[in-house]
Amino acid sequence: MVIPSLIQIVWAGLWLLIFGVCGYALWKGGPPERFGAALILLVALLGGLIEIGLKDNARQVGHLAADGLLAMGFLFVAVRYTSLWLGGAMLFQAVQFSLHAFYFVLKRPYDPLYSIVNNIDLFGVLSCLLAGALAANGRARARPAEAA
């Protein structure tokens, strides 16, 4: 019997969290939450492909580019829609971009500190998206009650 390591459990849990939160936002969120969820899913899948397909040096550039893509996508959504959750997600994304830039510029290999900050940051972005989707769902439920 193979016992999964803690890293494998955390990795699987983060993927479940990504798909769960983004799925909920796509299902119950408003337009900005749906667009944000689609962006997060796209960049998460792109990040998985980067991990599988690129070597160490190219991997850092790939992650930096993917985080830049997500930041630009959030900026587009923020210009189009004004949502409080986007402000928090953009701040977390700035930390994420800075993390990748720090490791890239100093040519540091990924270490436990990188993993911890990266995972906490991902949890923050997903928390902001979930809060936005919950708020959008609450507003949608309140509209029919107001009309009656």
Results as ranks from 00 to 15, higher is better:
residue 121 D to M: 01
residue 104 F to I: 05
residue 116 I to L: 11
residue 101 A to T: 10
residue 138 G to D: 15
residue 122 L to G: 05
residue 123 F to I: 15
residue 110 Y to P: 01
residue 122 L to E: 13
residue 128 C to G: 04
residue 111 D to F: 00
residue 102 F to R: 14
residue 122 L to V: 09
residue 112 P to Y: 01
residue 113 L to P: 02
residue 109 P to E: 12
residue 115 S to K: 09
residue 103 Y to N: 02
residue 131 A to H: 08
residue 119 N to L: 14
residue 138 G to T: 11
residue 136 A to T: 08
residue 128 C to F: 04
residue 127 S to L: 13
residue 133 A to N: 09
residue 101 A to I: 07
residue 103 Y to M: 04
residue 102 F to E: 09
residue 117 V to I: 15
residue 117 V to H: 01
residue 117 V to E: 02
residue 116 I to W: 09
residue 100 H to R: 04
residue 102 F to G: 03
residue 133 A to W: 03
residue 130 L to Q: 10
residue 138 G to F: 08
residue 119 N to C: 11
residue 110 Y to A: 14
residue 105 V to P: 03
residue 128 C to H: 02
residue 132 G to F: 05
residue 126 L to D: 06
residue 115 S to C: 06
residue 118 N to S: 13
residue 111 D to I: 01
residue 129 L to D: 07
residue 124 G to S: 14
residue 124 G to A: 15
residue 101 A to K: 05
residue 122 L to R: 10
residue 118 N to L: 08
residue 117 V to S: 02
residue 112 P to D: 08
residue 129 L to A: 06
residue 133 A to Y: 05
residue 111 D to T: 00
residue 127 S to N: 10
residue 123 F to T: 14
residue 130 L to P: 04
residue 136 A to I: 07
residue 120 I to M: 14
residue 134 L to A: 15
residue 108 R to C: 00
residue 135 A to W: 13
residue 130 L to S: 09
residue 120 I to N: 10
residue 135 A to H: 13
residue 129 L to G: 05
residue 131 A to T: 07
residue 131 A to N: 15
residue 132 G to M: 07
residue 100 H to Q: 08
residue 116 I to G: 03
residue 110 Y to W: 12
residue 100 H to C: 01
residue 121 D to W: 03
residue 109 P to R: 02
residue 107 K to T: 03
residue 125 V to K: 14
residue 138 G to E: 13
residue 132 G to D: 12
residue 114 Y to M: 02
residue 119 N to W: 10
residue 107 K to R: 15
residue 118 N to I: 00
residue 128 C to L: 06
residue 133 A to R: 06
residue 112 P to K: 06
residue 126 L to R: 04
residue 119 N to V: 15
residue 102 F to K: 12
residue 105 V to N: 05
residue 136 A to H: 05
residue 112 P to N: 07
residue 103 Y to K: 03
residue 110 Y to C: 03
residue 132 G to T: 08
residue 131 A to V: 11
residue 127 S to H: 11
residue 117 V to N: 05
residue 102 F to M: 13
residue 109 P to Y: 03
residue 113 L to W: 12
residue 138 G to P: 06
residue 118 N to A: 10
residue 106 L to A: 10
residue 130 L to V: 04
residue 120 I to G: 09
residue 116 I to K: 08
residue 110 Y to V: 10
residue 120 I to T: 12
residue 125 V to D: 01
residue 130 L to R: 11
residue 102 F to D: 12
residue 107 K to N: 13
residue 134 L to D: 12
residue 106 L to G: 03
residue 105 V to C: 01
residue 137 N to A: 15
residue 128 C to Q: 11
residue 101 A to W: 08
residue 134 L to E: 15
residue 113 L to T: 14
residue 108 R to S: 02
residue 107 K to Y: 00
residue 125 V to P: 02
residue 135 A to M: 13
residue 119 N to R: 13
residue 102 F to Y: 13
residue 103 Y to P: 01
residue 106 L to E: 12
residue 119 N to T: 15
residue 107 K to P: 01
residue 107 K to M: 06
residue 123 F to N: 07
residue 106 L to F: 07
residue 123 F to M: 14
residue 136 A to W: 04
residue 103 Y to H: 03
residue 100 H to K: 02
residue 131 A to I: 13
residue 119 N to P: 01
residue 138 G to K: 11
residue 106 L to M: 10
residue 113 L to R: 11
residue 108 R to T: 00
residue 113 L to A: 12
residue 134 L to P: 06
residue 135 A to S: 13
residue 120 I to Q: 10
residue 111 D to C: 01
residue 112 P to Q: 07
residue 106 L to R: 14
residue 111 D to V: 01
residue 104 F to W: 15
residue 136 A to E: 14
residue 127 S to I: 04
